[in-house]
Write a protein that binds this DNA or RNA. Structure first.
Lengths: 217, 217
DNA sequence: AATACTACTAAACATCCGTTTAGTATCAAG
DNA sequence: CTTGATACTAAACGGATGTTTAGTAGTATT
């Protein structure tokens, strides 16, 4: 083997990537291979090679939607948001067998009113299922969670049970903990106090009603 | 002259614009006319008409770079993974005899995910009462409203009745409009179609839980 | 010397793109 | 009744698009 796999970019690749980024930011959409080619006085085929190299190195993703279908992973830029809000990372989904606190899933961030956070470490989870409907928390809502390992009686908490995270009411009983769903068709979960693992406490809920025409994909 | 120039969008135009915004934000680049057409089951030519109408009304700009060259005015640049927020003015309370659209009450602003707004004129209302509990909207929640004077059947709207603003489900019936609360203990309100004054449509909900476990202020 | 990656050119291909031409139908205002 | 806007269909045009095939040349590592 001649050369090992690298994620390092060559000077030329960096120039191309920079230009593509600049174009995308200025125009609101990525350039075509010929637009890139024109900027560097090279043929479409040369650009094609650059894009493949940049994709292999994880700098962009070539979609399969034809013209201009370039996607850029993660956020490189965090521009002027408003002062009153902070981006809160979305770390996963709850109540459906998916673990929380897993490796960063690149699910983006949700802007939350800074006043709600009180400067503490928070994260967001996308709610799945309707175990909390009676608490006015619906499937698809974003639950804003403050990281803490204790909570008060009656709080809505994120609890970890068998590597599954669930959103439930916390109720302490004499010799056990009751994790109560807010859904009459669901039974409470009883666990031993020493098995209780609280991942955080619910401090807020965000919901979006998307008005979509046509068919959702 | 038959009809005066308007910047108001029709219901259908609004649906198309919403879909285009959603696509752009999700993909990082705008859709092609055929992608829009596929979503609404219409021909490219019909989409072309919509884009021209939306351009005339200032909702977007068709570039001259061929495929996907749509630009959106206002602040919103759609870069993948970069979510931002915009401050949305709080203009009052609802469902308790207080008028909306009153003089600025200096109730502050709520930061809302820009993704939800689609660059359109929105405002926030503090919910009072439990007329919408079954729709998972509680007393004290912030209702994020998009200003519009029409809505689809089944939408949750802000309707003005005798100078009072209420949040209700909109249902059109043969000779009347039914404004339905989401609370079994409350009766629907029937009004004549010509008396219906829609102030906006619910696009989002924000809720904050107090640190003591109860509800925020 | 062999291997692998970089950095390109030239020409071509099938497909996809925005747009055009030519219509149909509905609605509302003057 | 006309005008203008909305909301579409059907078929087609020319050009732009990503990609492929077939190369050349240079560099760096093994």
């Amino acid at each position: 083997m001649a050369r090992l796999f690298t994620t390092e970019l060559t000077k030329r690749q960096q120039q191309v990537l920079d230009w593509v980024h600049a174009f995308t930011h200025k125009q609101g959409f990525p350039p075509t291979v010929r637009e890139i080619g024109a900027a560097f006085h090279i043929t479409p085929r040369a650009v094609f090679d650059f894009l493949k190299a940049l994709e292999r190195k994880g700098c962009l993703k070539r979609g399969n939607l034809g013209a201009r279908s370039l996607e850029f992973p993660a956020a490189q830029k965090h521009e002027a948001g408003c002062e009153r809000c902070s981006p809160v990372r979305v770390v996963g989904r709850i109540a459906a067998g998916k673990p929380v606190m897993a490796a960063e899933d690149d699910l983006g961030a949700v802007p939350v009113n800074s006043e709600w956070l009180h400067g503490q470490d928070c994260y967001a989870l996308r709610v799945k299922g309707d175990s909390m409907v009676d608490a006015a928390i619906l499937d698809g809502d974003w639950a804003i969670i403050r990281k803490q390992d204790t909570a008060d009686d009656g709080d809505i908490v994120v609890a970890l049970i068998d590597d599954e995270a669930t959103l439930k009411y916390l109720h302490r009983e004499p010799r056990r903990i009751r994790l109560q769903p807010a859904n009459p068709r669901m039974k409470p979960l009883y666990i031993k106090p020493e098995d209780l693992q609280i991942q955080g406490k619910l401090i807020g809920v965000h919901r979006s009603y998307d008005s979509r025409g046509g068919r959702a994909r």
